[in-house]
Each structure stands twice: as C-alpha cells, then as structure tokens.
C-alpha cells in the first residue's frame, strides 16, 4: 500500500505529473474574483471564506479526471486488480495521494490568498481548519466520481456533473464553518457536521468506489 502511495506521489512530482497545477488554478480563480465583483474591500472580506472554499473545490475537481484514467489507459489498473491489494485499498490510497498532492497544498495556500481577499483576522484559523477537515472528503468523493467515469473517452465534463451534487453537503458545512468563523460566530455545529461527513465518507465511500471500479474493469 505504501508502495502505491509512494509511486503516485512520485508520479505527481515528476515531469508531466501536474503537481502544483491545482494550486496554480486555486490562485488564479481567487485573483479573478476581485476582477469580477469589484475591488471594494468590505464586500471581498464578506465573501472571502466562500470564495476560498469554492476555489478549493474547483481545483480539486479539475485534477480528478486524471486520478484513475491514466492507470486505466496504460493497463496498470487491470494489473492492480489482480494484485494482492484489495481494490478498496487501491481507491483509498489513490484518494489519499490526491489529497496530499492537491488538497493539502490548498489548505496551506488558503491563508495567503485570504490576505488578497481581505479576509478578517479571525477568519484565517477557521478557513484553514475547515479546509483541512473538508478537503479529504472532496478527494474521496471525487475518487468515486473518477471510478464511475474511468472507462469513458470524454469523462471530464460528466465527472464534474456527477461529483458536484455530491459535494453539496461538504461545501455547505465547510463554507459555513469558514464564514461563521470569519464573523466571530459559534462554529461548533458545522465543524462537527463537517468532520462527521469526512469521517463517514472516508470510511464508506471506498467500498462504493471499488464496486464501481470492478464493474468498469469487467
């Protein structure tokens, strides 16, 4: 299992691996927001938590179609399915690798981009905490979507269409934590809900992803 994780991480940082693209996309989306809504700093401060969450979600989404498709195309997925690793473990590791290469950098970059958006001081802590709790769920749910569309030639758009509705609860609670935190309100309930969703999704979703992958490999 560690071998698979290391391989995926190594592939991500090698040439053409696309590491950092998600981060760059996050940056560019965030920079585009003031251009579209105007430079008024009060308005930016109010929407900053939501913008950061939406940016993080979109960057996650963007890198999903390569998550399993590359292994599918070169035949590694067939070989992995006949290896001693259960497919449930394979998809979990894939999701973890996706989180480390995409989700974690987003969490770390969010405070910097928060400055650009005039995020209130109290907000930084909660933006980081909510992203840290929420992005693993985004990766795991995204892996399910990637498994659904793995055999399709142009699965990218369909993948977004399938995954976005599944992201709704995570986005709502995650952005709520960040927003309430930035306004200095109590965040206990949404934090618990967000953590609960992440935990449940990490525990259960790999079974669905593996089942879907088995059907696609048939």
């Amino acid at each position: 299992m560690i071998a698979l994780l290391l391989r995926d991480l190594r592939l991500a940082v090698r040439a053409g691996g696309g590491f950092g693209l998600g981060l760059a996309f996050f940056l560019i989306v965030t920079v585009m927001v003031p251009f579209s809504v105007g430079p008024e700093s009060e308005l930016l401060a109010r929407i900053a938590p939501g913008v950061l969450w939406l940016g993080a979600l979109l960057s996650c989404l963007l890198s999903l179609d390569r998550l399993l498709a590359l292994d599918w195309e070169d035949g590694s997925l067939d070989l992995l399915a006949t290896a001693p690793l259960p497919l449930e473990a394979v998809v979990s590791i894939k999701a973890l690798a996706h989180w480390i290469t995409t989700g974690l950098p987003l969490v770390l970059a969010a405070p910097v981009l928060g400055i650009l958006l005039n995020l209130p001081l109290e907000g930084f802590r909660w933006v980081v905490i909510s992203l840290f709790l929420g992005t693993p769920a985004l990766s795991v749910i995204g892996t399910f979507g990637a498994a659904l569309t793995v055999g399709l030639k142009r699965g990218g758009l369909l993948l977004s269409l399938l995954v976005m509705p599944l992201y709704v609860p995570t986005l709502i609670f995650g952005a709520e934590v960040a927003r309430r935190g930035a306004m200095g309100m109590g965040v206990e309930t949404p934090v618990l809900m967000l953590a609960g969703i992440s935990a449940a999704v990490i525990a259960l979703m790999p079974f669905a992803s593996a089942a879907v992958l088995r059907i696609n490999l048939r």
């Binding site: 035949g75 070989l79 290896a83 001693p84």
Partner: peptide
Amino acid sequence: EQIAYAAHSDGLKPALTVTENLRFWADVF
C-alpha cells in the same frame, strides 16, 4: 491469489525508471 496476469498493455509509467517500475510491482506483490 496464485495468478499473475500480463495483458496487452504493460502498465508501465513512462515517468518512472525501469527499476522504479519493477520495484513498485515487487512491493505490491
């Protein structure tokens, strides 16, 4: 758990070296 399968495609990662590719499968098995 006894079968090793070789398909039409080799499941190689072009960005990894020969050793790394092989080492990965050795670790998996």
